[in-house]
Design a protein around this nucleic acid. Structure first.
Lengths: 273, 273
DNA sequence: CGTCGGATTGAAGATACTCAACATGAGTGG
DNA sequence: CCACTCATGTTGAGTATCTTCAATCCGACG
């Protein structure tokens, strides 16, 4: 099985065989599994191994004094939980397992060696953290400038692309193990409202959400609803550009609604579940 | 004048005289001034100089197809606008000048040399981008889990700390050139509602906002309102810890309401205005 | 077949928006 | 020096979105 981290980073650059080998090796490190709901990393702790999500779904999450929880980001296979470990003294938020999740534990030493040896990998990792920030920024737009329907639509579009990258979005269907309550924690809405908005999206024939699988029935329309622009994901390697999907000509436009991105990614390893 | 960037990075680590000299030099690069409202960097462009805010106030901002603008982050003196330049092909958002703002333009080459020469500076810069992400995450909490009053209070607390770091928060008064409309763009609220919430905060004796200066009258109470925890700013160098301010014992608690942070920072160069 | 987590529905109410009017105040030109 | 103007701040009334708090339903699983 090809490493999901490698697949992700290859959105940024191609690696030489030796680089690729070392990268792939990262997921061969001892793994640790976490049951659904378990805390993978707790706020305030200093971690000594870097956690790479290998399969399952995790989330960054903050708990306020009154018990309210806010989900900050989702971590799909190929995502790193805690690169900040290199410089920060403690995590400022929790990482929790949304479903049963297994992580590869990469010793910081190992990672440091890798970075000092391969500048290409350093750059790719840097790209990864930068796009993570871009995703956070887009989440702020979701919260501040989009209504409930657009917000959910946008989140779905983003997850679709991210699962495509790791080859886990066949027929525009992606793993979606979130309960409506968890969706509420991520979007800042109430569970009943999530429910009603989901029904609306279903009624419009845009999505199908059943049994922990989200199927995007009409990606083009959904992207239109969300005003989804892929530029912020910085998908360099995408050959195809389709002005239809994006509202702006000067924007980077990777994925087409017909699944060209999927075509680009010929590795169709099924990682989830 | 000591470099504001150096002041900021010294929250993370102390530098040797030679490192400090090189860091200070960064703001001696050619500067460029931007009038209020002007676009410093436009979405979609690839920049070749790194912009360091030297004085004024800038903002990261996204404009949607329907013209709605969402402010993503504020950039105070000492903040870098575009470190992503090293790896990303284009900016995915705009940087705009909220007030008249001047930036030092640091050639990427120069920055690369600096980074390869001093690993301490590399680490500090890394710390800076990591805390920028943490600030973004906290903004998501503001939007998703705090009501309007808490949201504004939290933003004010954060700006207070960030201005303290660069020595520009005497008597808990900080530069605040934002119009209520601009505040609305940052918080996702409407201008009238901003107005009413501000009046509420004024009525509670928490703040005074007049003539582009925000004075925090009762920092302790304001932080309580916002449930403000400084941990996410990762202020390593803060000697003082005050359990009063924080709701949690295990959290990192730097700033005290009595201005201990201010005491720590003995450089009181006035940068703004 | 019962149980339990999760989804769904309803009704009442709060928060925040929209739109419009009006006030204020700093600059500006006559 | 005053009047005018424009941007900004303030206020009010009506309304929409979304929340809250239940009750109820469904379906997987023991």
């Amino acid at each position: 099985m090809s490493n999901v981290l490698t697949m992700k980073l290859e959105q940024f650059t191609r690696f030489s065989p030796s680089e690729r080998e070392r990268l792939d090796d990262l997921s061969n490190h001892p793994r640790k599994s976490f049951a659904r709901g378990e805390t993978i990393i707790r706020e305030g702790t200093k971690v000594h191994n870097i956690h790479l999500v290998v399969c399952g779904l995790a989330a960054r999450s903050k708990t306020l004094a009154d018990g309210t929880r806010q989900t900050l980001a989702f971590l799909v296979p190929g995502d790193l939980c805690d690169v900040e470990v290199f410089v920060l003294q403690a995590m400022d938020h929790d990482i929790i397992a949304v479903t049963d999740t297994t992580c590869a534990l990469i010793p910081t030493k190992e990672m440091e060696d890798l970075l000092s040896e391969f500048s290409s990998i350093t750059k790719a990792l840097w790209w990864s953290t930068m796009t993570d920030s871009a995703v956070l920024r887009e989440r702020i737009v979701d919260h501040g400038s989009r209504d409930a329907r657009q917000h959910l639509a946008h989140m779905f579009c983003e997850l679709l692309i991210r699962y495509r990258i790791i080859g886990d979005a066949r027929d525009n269907a992606i793993p979606f193990p979130l309960t409506q309550e968890e969706l509420a924690e991520a979007t800042g809405m109430s569970p009943p409202h999530i429910n009603r908005v989901l029904q609306q999206l279903r009624g419009e024939g845009l999505i199908e959400l059943r049994g922990k699988v989200l199927k995007i029935l009409d990606a083009e329309s959904l992207m239109k609803v969300a005003q989804f622009q892929t530029g912020y994901l910085h998908l360099n390697r995408t050959e195809a550009r389709d002005p239809e999907v994006s509202g702006r000509a000067d924007d980077l436009v990777p994925a087409s609604p017909k699944g060209l991105v999927q075509g680009v990614i010929n590795k169709v390893t099924r990682v989830f579940e």
